[in-house]
């Protein structure tokens, strides 16, 4: 009876929605690269952009909230995505959610507004490579050319019938962040892999 006792917390680890999919992503033609960025902290923020709370929130985040539709801002390790005229999604590193949520809630104080931790609602995929725009175009009608969608563009749209947020992360529009609902993530990953099969050769 000398079986070593292993604490359950060492055996259990969180499973991201796309756990185990990386090998399939790696098998895609090398003109695209897909990686899941799992467990990113995500906060939904509702606040009046012209009210005093918006200024207080900007101090916490280190940058003003983007008010231009379909845009986003980077502030240190936070990404502030425009979701609507009074709604934003804040992406932060894994584990940063609860602290940031408290800080934002304190900043809003008694003003109208809301902060909700929605980290488990969606997962995030990094899509890069010279054919990434071509890959997305197979299921998405948004023009992602950098002339139309410059760096920072953040569109909520349908890709292959799946609701998704696309963030253009570089000036050549070949590096995207795709934010997809957890329950749709496996479908979307399977679609990405299928759409990527016929991308061959150099760009």
């Amino acid at each position: 009876m000398t079986a070593e006792h292993v604490s359950p917390s060492k055996l259990l680890r969180p499973l991201s929605p796309l756990d185990g999919w990386q090998a399939a992503f790696d098998a895609l033609p090398n003109v695209v690269a897909v990686t899941e960025i799992a467990f990113m902290a995500q906060l939904n923020l509702r606040v009046d952009p012209s009210g005093p709370a918006a200024g207080a929130v900007a101090k916490v985040l280190g940058s003003a909230l983007p008010t231009q539709p379909c845009s986003s801002t980077r502030s240190g390790e936070y990404q502030l995505l425009w979701l609507g005229p009074d709604e934003w999604l804040i992406l932060a590193p894994e584990g940063a959610g609860p602290e940031l949520e408290t800080a934002l809630r304190e900043a809003i104080g008694g003003e109208p507004g809301a902060v909700t931790d929605v980290s488990a609602q969606r997962t995030t995929l990094a899509l890069s490579g010279c054919a990434s725009r071509e890959l997305l175009a197979k299921g998405c009608s948004i023009d992602l050319h950098p002339k139309v969608s410059p760096m920072g563009t953040c569109v909520q749209t349908l890709v292959a019938q799946t609701g998704i947020i696309i963030v253009a992360r570089d000036e050549t529009a070949s590096d995207f962040l795709l934010v997809v609902r957890a329950s749709f993530a496996q479908y979307f990953a399977a679609w990405l892999i299928d759409a990527g099969v016929e991308l061959t050769g150099a760009c």
Partner: peptide, 10 residues
Amino acid sequence: PWCGPREEAE
């Protein structure tokens, strides 16, 4: 009025 032209299915 916010996002610009999008497909009807949205």
